[in-house]
């Protein structure tokens, strides 16, 4: 474990050197930053989906909501991160808490469809907010001001994103190992048993849902600073679907799976789109094949000790 972590950190640390060597200017570094950002989002989804068994098809809502938090405050001249970021994350927490109160009362298929519907609701709300660009999106004139740290410097933004990813992974690792994490994981396979053991499962799940939403918000904040732009398409339902693909592709319920999955999916999309306009024609069946034949995800190729995912039944 320790060796893997060190190796991963080493790779992440030298990425700017490698990308500089590739000669594509900031493109490859920007692409790497995008991978890291989506890795954070996928990790946050993994918290509830991989460990908690809660299949949310609306997770991208938090991503977009936080990005809008940055964008809207910037549009009103508030560009200091000390205000922007807490407000954006608080918005995610509130949205997660309010929707969580409704969605967590349900399970299985209901849960999937309701998370989707709530995300759609938020999507339509931002599409019709004309003050903030509506469907056209909102250009963010200045990146968040973070003391002496200049986020306009691509290398800085990259390392900050990596730092956030490491923090998210560490948090996930500690959380899952804790008593709290045990209840969440236990509820995945048998909610009733956990309830019978005297755990307030609903409250635990709600907290996990909010934590995942806030963590996804961190990714949204970074994305807003990377692209200096935010639009409702950040929270379109297909984005939520892609997040799920990342988690499963990499290996759900494993710490590093979502990171691998995010990298693999984004690189695959990039390569396919470079090759053909009809890239979705190939991506679709690839996803189908992954589901059918590679249930343990990419992480299974690297780490033979990681346990096979439990065939939990949530009907």
């Amino acid at each position: 474990m320790r060796a893997t972590v060190l190796a991963a950190l080493a790779i992440a640390a030298v990425v700017p050197l490698v990308t500089a060597g590739l000669g594509g200017g900031e493109f490859y570094l920007g692409f790497a930053t995008r991978i890291v950002i989506f890795a954070i989002a996928a990790t946050s989804l993994n918290l509830i989906l991989g460990y908690g068994g809660l299949v949310s098809l609306g997770h991208a809502a938090f991503f977009g909501l936080a990005a809008y938090g940055v964008g809207i405050l910037a549009a009103h001249g508030v560009d200091t991160a000390a205000i922007q970021w807490p407000v954006a994350l608080a918005a995610c927490a509130v949205f997660a808490a309010v929707t969580g109160l409704v969605v967590l009362r349900t399970s299985g298929i209901y849960f999937i469809m309701i998370t989707l519907a709530f995300a759609q609701m938020l999507y339509f709300l931002f599409v019709s907010l004309r003050q903030y660009g509506g469907d056209d999106g909102l250009t963010i004139a200045t990146r968040s001001r973070l003391g002496p740290i200049d986020l306009g410097e691509p290398v800085v933004l990259y390392y900050l994103s990596v730092l956030c990813l490491v923090g998210s992974l560490w948090f996930c690792h500690r959380l899952v190992a804790s008593r709290f994490g045990m209840v969440i994981r236990g509820a995945r396979t048998n909610t009733r048993r956990m309830a019978a053991l005297g755990f307030p499962v609903f409250r635990y799940q709600l907290v996990a849902f909010v934590l995942a939403g806030v963590m996804c918000g961190v990714a949204g904040i970074l994305q807003a600073n990377l692209t200096q732009f935010v639009s409702p398409s950040y929270m379109a339902w297909a984005r939520s679907g892609e997040l799920i693909v990342m988690v499963v592709l990499g290996g759900m319920g494993t710490l590093f799976g979502p990171v691998l999955g995010a990298a693999a999916l984004l690189i695959l999309e990039e390569v396919l789109a470079d090759w053909t306009v009809h890239w979705m024609l190939y991506l679709g069946p690839i996803i189908v094949l992954i589901v059918l034949f590679a249930k343990r995800g990419l992480i299974g190729l690297f780490d033979r000790r990681s346990p096979p995912p439990a065939g939990g039944h949530h009907g």
Binding site: G24, G25, E26, F27, Y28, F31, G137, Q223, T227, S233
Partner: peptide, 20 residues
């Protein structure tokens, strides 16, 4: 380059065109 009608993808392909 296909922007897929997604601003973030449009930005990414533009950066590729400009820098690579």
């Amino acid at each position: 380059e296909d922007d897929q009608l997604r601003p973030d993808v449009g930005l990414q392909v533009t950066q590729k065109l400009l820098q690579r």
